[in-house]
Nucleic acid binder design. Structure first.
Lengths: 181, 181
DNA sequence: ACCATAACTGTCCGATCGGTCAGCTCTGAC
DNA sequence: GTCAGAGCTGACCGATCGGACAGTTATGGT
């Protein structure tokens, strides 16, 4: 009697996920067909649809770990406030983004689809970066910080992660430091 | 004998362009079908293809003015150097982005297609924002500034342009000011 | 030896895509 | 009046999309 396994234990399944992530990140979700992924993974389209119910399920499985990490980050930030909140939000989000660079690129390209809102807790993230300030100028700065992080992690594959991390944190701090009115 | 007219003088043509820009900005180029545009503009798909050779021609005509303005900006920046170059690049690019907000949103969503490079002179723009510095950290900061500008202008429809402009320029300055090693 | 099931595939399907084309209507020049 | 051409359309086309399904092969438990 085998243990219950929610997922088939095939190497192919992992290859499909890897191919899908690379192609989605390179050409976008809409710009990648199931046939493209299957060919890249070296199997038939039917085989792909044996392992994954449909194209959306593939996307969901690729993004779930990232979403969970961001959810955990938001939960951690919930207990903080003031400058510590902003600092923790900056470092936490930078680290997460660097750990899931290709997923970031994919998310970033598909933001439009969900009308720019409600994607992976972006509203909560905005609040953290502003230190929960209602000032519209602080919100604009927080938006800038998010955009800076997204674009920078999506490209710049040549820059080492450590340099990127240092510069991103520095930049976002500079972006979010308030000049008193 | 009528004067030579390169473009048919129809109100419908303008409506199609307007519908296309709005739908492209909202759902992306790939995510918008010719039928969608035609329905929105209140005509048939065949009529749309009477005014525009194909879907790409529609995109080109929508982006040409923006591209021309950026080209002109880059030409202006070519004569400058040092802090004046960076300052002029910041204000110039912010103003252009604010003047073509929906086009920015469209461009921003389609960046992936051209593999993040060669889009509307982004390389030259990067050089301007770094003050033509080869320092990789300066390049990262410039990338952050571009991302901040793109995302902020693409969303934030509720924030007045003046507030957005002020905050964008301030933020980009803060991002690009070098802290000596 | 037998068989249930996991793993996989070839083939087909309806929908939708961008684009073509013959033909319709209307209007202004002569 | 008539006629050329601008403006516009319905019908159609091949390609490609995501997905369904029956069927084949391999494998491990009994």
């Amino acid at each position: 009697m085998v243990e219950h396994m929610a997922r088939p234990a095939t190497a192919l399944r992992g290859h499909i996920l890897e191919s899908a992530l690379r192609l989605f990140a390179a050409n976008g979700f809409r710009g990648t067909s199931l046939q493209d992924i299957a060919s890249d993974a070296g199997c038939s389209k039917a085989s792909l649809l044996y392992h994954f119910a449909n194209k959306d399920a593939l996307l969901v499985e690729l993004l779930t770990p990232t979403a969970e990490e961001i959810t955990a980050l938001l939960a951690r930030l919930d207990a903080l406030e003031g400058p510590e909140l902003v600092e923790a939000a900056v470092t936490g989000y930078v680290d997460t983004a660097l750990r899931f660079r290709r997923q970031m690129r994919l998310l970033f390209a598909e933001i439009e689809r969900a009308s720019n809102k409600e994607v992976l807790g972006v509203p909560d993230l905005l609040q953290s970066l502003t230190g929960r300030s209602p000032d519209p100028r602080a919100r604009v700065a927080a938006w800038m910080a998010i955009g800076a992080l997204f674009i920078t992690t999506a490209g710049n594959d040549d820059v080492p992660d450590e340099v990127l991390r240092t510069e991103l944190i520095l930049g976002m701090r500079r972006l979010l430091q308030h000049t008193p009115t």
